[in-house]
Every structure is written in structure tokens, then in C-alpha cells.
Amino acid sequence: MPEKSVYSANAHLSPIVVTSNVRVEEAAPLVRLSLRGGEAAASHAGASIGAPLPLEPLTSTMADKAAAFWLGPDEWQIAIQEGDATAVFERVETAMADTPHSLVDVSERNRALIISGPKAAWLLNSQIFLDFDEAVFPVGMVTRTLFGKADIMLWRQSEDIFVLEAWRSFMPYVIELLQEASRELEAA
């Protein structure tokens, strides 16, 4: 495991859900790059961020304060905890200069939630139809899917920690439904 996950709770915001067995927190801002292209581009990009880009479907790779997610056969999302999106963009773009590809800064497009605790999977299953049994959805798995009616990206960072990303305007919907589903945990 890398020393520090690319996702950390945004210390400036209070948690969205806190119960004895699940927490939902907004992640701190980070740099997100959408990479489209072939494996050659992916290999150059991986070298530039210190984490080889995953080539197996629905898998992820992690480096210190960075992660790369397989989203499609020619599509990856790179996440880096670093202040300056432009600088990161230039670094990765330069590394792929001679290879056809598309690199787009989408740092601001998504917001991320960190859902953690023994009831994290249960909470997500209120709106996500995936099977979170570890044999089916192991640690490190990442996928796009639906949360209710919102498109999301979901990554299992560890057994009990999930990261959910959605386009920013969909996030209030996701948060409202997570809060709604968590209310009964407080009662129980």
C-alpha cells in the first residue's frame, strides 16, 4: 500500500454522515486527468506519475498520493493529490508527446465522497445494484455505474473504504440519498 491515499477527507468540511458504523466525507480537491488512447500512451503516462496505468478491466493502480483507474479499454482516470492542475497536466502531456492520445483536465468536473466503515457497502447498496462481496468486487476494483439515476465512478480503496465520484451537479442528489439511507443506522 502506498503511504498516503490520493483521497483524503476535506478537512474544511464537516462529515456528511457519521454513525457508529459508517462515515461519509467529501474528499479534498485533487487533480484529475482523463486519458484516452492506446497502451503506448498509457505506458508513458504511467511513467510520468509513478504508477503504471492498469490494463486489466476494472482495476486500479496506486502510487504515493496518486492513483490510476481503468474506465474503458482506451480510457483511464488519473488522480493526483497536488495543487497545480496545469503543472500536472503539462508533465503528463509532455510524457506522451509522440503518441496519439487525448489528455483532458477534468479536475473540476467531479467531486468525490469517501464512504467508510463496516456498513459502507450496505449504505451504497441502497442505490447501487452491484454486489460488494469481496469475491465479486475486490479491493482495488473500480467501475462506472449508476447510483440511483446518477452516473458515478466507484472505487474500492480497501475492504471498508469506497470512493464515489460523480459530476459535481449530481453530487447533492447522491449526498441526499446517502443521508436518507443512513438515517436508519442512527436509529438502530
Partner: peptide, 12 residues
């Protein structure tokens, strides 16, 4: 074709 599409509706 070597061209790719990325939605940036919410980036901006």
C-alpha cells in the same frame, strides 16, 4: 480515427 471525446460540461 485518432481522436477522443471527453465531456467537460461540468469542468467549466
Amino acid at each position: 480515427l485518432n481522436v477522443w471525446l471527453t465531456s467537460t460540461t461540468e469542468q467549466w
